[in-house]
Amino acid sequence: MTRPITEHTGQLFVHYSQFLVQEEAGSVTEDLPLGDNGLVEAGEGRLTVHTGIHTGDIEVTLRAYGTEPEAELAGFEEVVEVSVTSPSGNLTVGELMTDPGAFPSLAPQGPGSYRLRFHARGRDTAPDEAPEHVVEWYLIQSWPAPPAPPQALALNDACGAELREASSGQEITRTVPVAENSGLAAIRARQARLEQEGD
């Protein structure tokens, strides 16, 4: 089993159902539409990770490796990989409306190209709500790697299915039927609101 070089777990406060991965020196990757995976999108020089909750704390674990680690698929509904470039070696996780917080860099080996693997669990628990305690967990693995196309290793939550469907305009087969998830209407309302705010 590959051991991480650095590891950090902490809480992050979410605004408007998203948090960011940003590079101090500017653009991190080519644009990536949300409809491609329903978890991570890229634009305006940063990565945006979409949460189920609207506002509140989530738990985020960062693990940086020297070589590609095993994907931790057990216990996570969504797992997506993307390539990024870190010109400064300061690739940070942060909140939407504040400067990067106490999380260490996802590029501890300095400037270069990295692969990020995003894992998400719990996005269907309280969609578009503001829970008083943590109901969502995220793991981000990073390691040096040449650029490669984005890859989805697991796409199994209803939140991601709804975001993919709303973003792509195509019908997506859900792993959770609509009748079993009362939060889907809230997710649709959130996506409609985000599209209106973007106009």
Rank of each mutant, 00 (worst) to 15 (best):
102 A>C: 10
86 S>H: 02
96 L>C: 10
77 E>A: 15
103 F>K: 09
107 A>W: 06
84 V>N: 00
100 P>D: 03
95 E>D: 09
92 T>W: 06
96 L>I: 01
75 G>D: 09
109 Q>H: 12
76 F>A: 14
91 L>P: 04
105 S>D: 04
102 A>Q: 15
104 P>S: 08
101 G>F: 12
88 S>Q: 01
86 S>N: 04
93 V>H: 10
100 P>N: 09
98 T>C: 09
96 L>F: 14
103 F>G: 07
85 T>V: 07
89 G>A: 04
102 A>G: 15
89 G>L: 01
94 G>V: 02
103 F>V: 04
90 N>H: 11
106 L>T: 02
94 G>W: 01
87 P>H: 04
108 P>M: 04
100 P>Y: 05
94 G>I: 03
90 N>I: 09
89 G>T: 03
76 F>Q: 09
83 S>M: 03
81 E>L: 13
94 G>D: 01
80 V>M: 13
100 P>L: 05
91 L>F: 04
75 G>P: 08
88 S>K: 05
82 V>D: 00
95 E>W: 07
98 T>P: 10
104 P>T: 04
105 S>K: 06
98 T>R: 06
76 F>Y: 15
102 A>W: 06
91 L>K: 02
91 L>V: 00
84 V>I: 10
93 V>N: 13
77 E>G: 14
89 G>K: 03
81 E>Y: 15
109 Q>S: 09
92 T>S: 14
87 P>F: 02
103 F>P: 12
105 S>T: 12
86 S>Q: 06
88 S>P: 08
82 V>I: 13
92 T>Y: 04
77 E>V: 09
81 E>W: 14
109 Q>E: 13
78 E>M: 12
89 G>R: 00
78 E>Q: 15
76 F>H: 15
78 E>G: 10
94 G>Y: 00
87 P>T: 03
83 S>P: 14
107 A>Y: 10
102 A>V: 02
93 V>A: 15
88 S>E: 03
104 P>Q: 08
98 T>S: 15
75 G>L: 11
75 G>Y: 13
105 S>L: 02
100 P>Q: 10
101 G>Y: 08
84 V>F: 03
91 L>D: 01
104 P>I: 07
108 P>D: 10
90 N>M: 11
75 G>Q: 07
82 V>S: 02
81 E>A: 15
90 N>G: 01
90 N>Q: 13
82 V>E: 02
83 S>Q: 13
75 G>N: 08
93 V>C: 11
107 A>I: 07
